[in-house]
Write a protein that binds this DNA or RNA. Structure first.
Lengths: 135, 135
DNA sequence: ATTTAAAACAGAATGATTACGAATTAGGTG
DNA sequence: CACCTAATTCGTAATCATTCTGTTTTAAAT
């Protein structure tokens, strides 16, 4: 997706186009994989020496809320990646390099059948292993 | 499963049958759902006033390693439950009461097909919502 | 150019988890 | 049963991710 479209996504939510936000989005589009707050901080300090974790975490939440990012917990840390624009999907995540691959097959209906009576709010499907390069 | 079988599982791994370990297992079999370290600490202090978090976390790891417990991250905290002895399965978790339900349908083969080339090591499937009582 | 609410800063606080040296204990051996 | 030793626990401090607070800066509307 083009940076321009992210800018409009921010504007549509009355959010300011700050340097830090745009830089964050740029980093996420450059690495199309899950990144931790620490990894982002390391990328950001070179450009914004005094950037605080508060800024990073706040923007990660904001960008997740408006759908620019998606999040998952890996090794006890929250990680974020640029959100795919496609339909419902899940991910395979390489345990070595962090690369992700989209998985389209998702049998929610089958699970709904199995769980007759309960109210399903959300679900998480994540596959882990080594990608073609890392195996 | 009977407590006796857990004792043998511990012995089979050359682990001692300490009071804390047996009490932990008893708590887990009593509540058949995911519990956090803090919830376990609250259960344990009444019996062992000076019990340290080190002891709790260490034993949670040990019991997970030998397959007595299974773990998952909920709300940023690691949670543990007594491991089902059945075949491969996943869980529905009630977001209000924490009750779990087993899901048996799992299309790993379909995902393997979709991910031709990668080496699949593990995967996570978790459904969230409200159970029949809580909805 | 001015104004102001949003955003960022600096650093302290919180909460989960781990680490460490000293003390205790389970379970094997004589 | 008494002793021994490695495993386990204790008590507490340290670490790490994340959040909070009060102040300062800034995007962008007027």
């Amino acid at each position: 997706m083009l940076i321009k479209q992210y800018k409009e996504q921010l504007k549509a939510h009355n959010l300011k186009l700050t340097d830090k936000r745009l830089k964050l989005i740029e980093i996420f589009t450059r690495y199309d994989k899950y990144l931790s707050a620490k990894e982002l901080q390391q990328q950001l300090v070179s450009v914004y020496p005094g950037i605080s974790y508060d800024t990073i975490y706040r923007n990660l939440h904001t960008l997740t809320d408006i759908g620019v990012l998606e999040q998952t917990t890996l090794d006890g840390e929250m990680n974020y990646k640029i959100s795919c624009t496609d339909d419902h999907h899940h991910h395979f995540i390489c345990e070595r390099c962090g690369e992700t691959q989209v998985i389209t097959y998702c049998p929610v209906e089958k699970w709904e059948d199995e769980l007759a009576g309960v109210q399903l709010n959300s679900h998480k499907v994540e596959l882990y292993g080594y990608c073609v390069e890392c195996r």
